[in-house]
Design a binder for these strands. Structure first.
Lengths: 297, 297
DNA sequence: TCCATTCTCTGACTCTAGTCAGAGATATTC
DNA sequence: GAATATCTCTGACTAGAGTCAGAGAATGGA
């Protein structure tokens, strides 16, 4: 398997990587082209640009300077925070970006047209699979303070989705509580799943102290579904539960959350009789952990 | 499809490409690491190194200089041609190369271990598919002079394989002739398939002048099988035949060449009665081309 | 209000990658 | 044997990519 990955890396970097970037950049430097592309049609602030591209602030400043003096971008100042500068593409910047776009198409075409129809279909399917799985491998699950803005936003998105999907909407104050202090050690734990800096899911535990813990706040952002993020969050929670000495996990869920129910079933959760009076729940599940907890990787 | 390819390129270059090379190089510059790797365990001459890596001779000379002064490689002079310099890895050069090797393994592991067993299997399968198809797309089929060393070597390899596979060996002088002048315009045509500078297959036409042409010298190197090279060569020959006004293609083949027979059948060749007295043949095929020849891409 | 922090910008660097022209040694061809 | 070609090496460049330190403006918290 390792060999396969290495062979793949080799072939792909030679045929797609270097070639690609060099070719696309052509009239600009590589850095300029990357920035031009990353700014996007709607513009963005310099800070997020720096984070997304992982550039030094001085370097980025200079890159933007040359792009601005070439008339491709217009810089401005954020209204909310006047330290932050915003950039957007000018008309000619958009045109330039269109050219990059087109070149990218040409390059993709050049690859595809060497193949038969059947090979093309197979290539695209395999590329989709590789892309999805590499993205999945980029997801990192880690503990977070429930009060952190990131965590707050994630929980908010979770509530918003529940409100959208539940037949009668969702009001957290009616539901069983899971406040900040209940989801922070030692009472509980909150984990977030991150993908390239963006939060794409969460999950939490509430320890009961009697060897039992509730699984709460299980959620995956729509953009990250199908990557196995939910399964990873759940596995992470189970590991943490076992470490904390909670060998029985309990959870309740609403009948409209079919993916979640599927996940719980396939992860070994057994449906049990109602054990709480959560007003939004239709199903109650339980799982007894066994064996020693695997080490945290 | 184009979008799929572009998304793939994006994800892969970000996650595999840049990261990979930078990480692997670490203690050396990227160029040095590439050279160190490409020299290989047996050493090679500087010229082929230059061609394979596509480097300027001055630049390569300097890279080798630094590697030599670091004691990683030893330079020498070719015995056959004293202009040509050879390089080989020293003991510590081999060790250094081993480190690069190991890092590559570590990197591959890091990717795999983020995934579940099932995902891992799927990723490897998809990577294999992408790798194979991208390699296949890199194959270029083009016309060649039969007297060119490359063509000669290819035909020689073809004969060697026939000799290995035919029950009673193969002696070209007994077989129906296909000499240089018969395979060069206007009497015929020889095409070679090339993959990254290496010849990986051939095929030829012998025009009869009555709207018929023989397909000869169909061969694909073992290292390049399963990439659809044979099919591409055949399609290329058919295009050339049609352009030259030969609308019926004929060929004979030996019963041991099962892949070739499969290819002919699936490409629309119909088995017909013996039409030649080729001593090594067991099967005779024919195909009538229809429609206008597609443009040469 | 003051102090620490955040954000961008500027100057001064380093290192890599790569190009170009030409010199000198060696082969090949006529 | 002379002319031409091939191969490597050296010197002199350029441009890109990126780092580091610090200045100045703006903001947020005690």
């Amino acid at each position: 398997m390792v060999d396969q990955v290495r062979r793949f890396n080799r072939v792909v970097t030679q045929h797609v990587g270097a070639l690609n970037e060099r070719y696309l950049a052509r009239s600009h430097s590589l850095g300029e082209a990357r920035v031009l592309w990353e700014i996007g049609a709607e513009g963005c602030d310099m800070r997020s640009l720096r984070v997304r591209l992982g550039l030094d602030s001085g370097y980025l400043s200079r890159l933007l300077g040359t792009l601005a003096s070439a008339g491709l971008i217009a810089a401005g100042t954020s209204e909310r925070d006047r330290r932050i500068r915003t950039v957007r593409l000018t008309r000619s910047g958009l045109a330039e970006r269109g050219i990059l776009d087109e070149r990218s198409d040409v390059l993709a075409h050049a690859l595809l047209e060497q193949l038969s129809d059947e090979q093309r279909v197979r290539l695209c399917a395999a590329m989709g699979e590789v892309e999805r799985l590499i993205t999945a491998a980029g997801v990192a699950v880690g503990i977070s303070d429930p009060a952190h803005p990131e965590a707050r936003q994630c929980i908010r998105a979770y509530f918003a989705e529940l409100n959208r999907r539940f037949d009668a909407g969702f009001d957290p104050s009616v539901s069983i509580s899971a406040e900040d202090d209940e989801l922070a050690p030692p009472a509980g734990v909150l984990v977030l799943a991150r993908l390239r800096g963006r939060t794409v899911g969460c999950g939490a535990l509430k320890f009961h102290g009697d060897g039992r813990a509730d699984v709460k706040r299980m959620w995956v952002a729509e953009t990250a579904r199908g990557l196995g993020v939910g399964r990873r969050i759940l596995a992470d929670l189970e590991r943490r539960a076992a470490v904390a000495g909670a060998w029985t996990l309990c959870l309740e869920t609403n009948r409209t959350l079919v993916e979640a129910i599927g996940l719980y079933r396939s992860a070994g959760y057994r449906e049990v009789a109602r054990f709480s009076n959560e007003p939004y729940a239709h199903h109650w599940f339980e799982k007894h952990l066994v064996g020693t907890p695997p080490s945290t990787s």
